[in-house]
């Protein structure tokens, strides 16, 4: 079967390697895309460790853990789908991909519940943002480096007299944590949505029996994308949910 080999490739294997390499180069740019947010996170967590701990404590660790497990399970399904497609079991691959899609949708559903909770508690950055140290169950942090920071360096900082109380300052810094939380999980969720659509197309093709030992490039390449999105979450989970 050579019908799928484009004229500028010698054979199916060379075409597969080219597609694979292209996907990895795209993923390298994705690493830098998410990397800029991780860099912002690193700098601000270094400057305001206390606020990041306080903000993190208000996130639901149980939901975060379940979501991580759900995403890891979806990655297992995708890996099994690639294996099935590469061993001439295109229909089985379709089944595994549907499993991965279901897990992806479950992840997004849990994320939606968490977002709704943030809106309910006014933890969404903006005009209505509120964060109170007492009510959030804040704990003291040991061994944190205290970096004294010019108050005017805080984005959206309020310089009016009477508004620079320690609680107000903490609130502004926690707002920064939640800005990063929404930017990072939001960008991740957008990638999930794109991934679900991508896997849906590949699952349909797999159901039609389009893939075999000689041609399973779309399953492999879209699988790489899905695994990458999983890896991003593997780092997001401890960095956002598990700060002490």
């Amino acid at each position: 079967m050579t019908g799928h080999v484009a004229h500028h490739f010698d054979d199916a294997e060379q075409q597969f390697h080219a597609a694979n390499l292209g996907m990895w180069i795209f993923l390298a740019t994705e690493v830098m895309f998410f990397g800029s947010l991780f860099a912002a996170y690193t700098a601000y967590r270094y400057m305001f460790p206390e606020a990041f701990v306080a903000g993190s404590h208000s996130l639901d660790v149980v939901m975060g853990t379940i979501n991580t497990a759900v995403l890891l399970l979806s990655s297992l399904f995708v890996a099994l789908a690639v294996n099935a497609a590469a061993t001439n079991r295109s229909r089985a691959a379709a089944g595994f991909l549907v499993g991965a899609i279901v897990m992806g949708v479950v992840f997004l559903g849990i994320k939606a519940v968490e977002y709704a909770d943030k809106f309910a508690h006014n933890h969404v950055p903006g005009a209505h943002f509120q964060f109170h140290r007492e009510s959030e169950g804040e704990h003291a942090v040991d061994g944190e480096h205290h970096v004294s920071v010019n108050e005017s360096a805080i984005p959206g900082g309020d310089f009016q007299a009477g508004h620079n109380s320690p609680d107000r300052t903490l609130e502004k810094r926690v707002e920064l944590f939640f800005s990063l939380y929404f930017a990072m999980t939001g960008l991740h969720a957008l990638h999930m949505v794109i991934g679900v659509v991508l896997l849906g197309i590949v699952a349909y093709q797999a159901w039609r029996g389009a893939y075999s030992q000689t041609y399973f490039t779309p399953v492999e390449v879209s699988g790489l994308y899905w695994h990458f999105v999983d890896i991003v979450w593997v780092f997001l989970f401890p960095l956002l949910y598990l700060i002490r």
Binding site: L27, T29, M32
Partner: peptide, 12 residues
């Protein structure tokens, strides 16, 4: 391919 895999992470 391995070089491309490493490139993104090394850049980060």
């Amino acid at each position: 391919t391995r070089l491309a895999v490493a490139a993104g992470f090394v850049g980060l």
